[in-house]
Amino acid sequence: MPAAISYRPRRLSRVTDRVMRLALWGLALAFIAVLAVFVGAILKQGWPVLNLGFLTRMPETLDAGGGIKPEIFNSLYLVALSLAISLPIGLGAGIYMAEYAGQGRILRFLRLCIETLAATPSIVLALFGMIVFVQMMGWSFSIRSGAVTLALLNIPVITRVTEVSLLGVPRELKEASYGLGATRLQTILKVALPYAATGILTGLVLTAGRAFGESAILVFTAGTNTSQTFPDFRLTVPGETLSVHLWYVTSDGTLPDAREIAAGTAAVMIVVLLVLNLSVRLLDRFIRRRTR
């Protein structure tokens, strides 16, 4: 019997291997630490400010002690409106790309456009919204200018997530539908979309979170003021959101308690996003369980 051939890497290689693997663990743990410090610091700074009064008072323009009631409302209202605008368009475009465009040049071109729109900086979308909706359409700084421009941010994300979810629908399911005599449209609307719905919903929640946090677009389209009545559902009034408020009070500097208000607003936003994130996770788990 020949002796077992055994090869061990050189000592230096083994040491490097161990060191680098430890370093990669360290790097990963560092990211977890960054996130923990980040969320911890924001919540810690904001905690003393957070109380029912802060959440339910109107904001002040010159004095200390203002709340963020209308900003909370505006944030939710603008997110809902922008989703209502972008959902049909994004669904339509996603359906076209997944079900009709085939594999050719049209699909490639559409995908290029979607990618470009998705990568367009929000400040550029803000400039576009400012020219077209605020100035040319004469809508000035208002909820409607903000909602429409914000929709531009959502459209590529919803399109992409619709396309991906539809492509994930098993072929057999569609073939069975055709076999039963359904038309293409019926198959899409009654078989493919319901199957893809949970995936699309997850994407929608993520989109809502992104729109909720967006500020650059809204500073230049929805404005940095808010209506004095509450709740104000009119589309023509300016609608400062939480994120815009957070930015505006720190950069404007007329409020004596700008720092506290910013910290409190940031904490509220973090809490909202944590909740959204959790719901995405639950949705995801639900999908996995169903498809298993």
Binding site: F31, G213, E214, V244, I270, L273
Partner: peptide
């Protein structure tokens, strides 16, 4: 999950963290 959270944090909140 950490990366999902980091990408979901709004830029103004990053800004205020930097500032404060």
């Amino acid at each position: 999950q950490v990366m999902d959270l980091l990408v979901g944090i709004p830029s103004v909140v990053y800004g205020i963290f930097g500032l404060m």
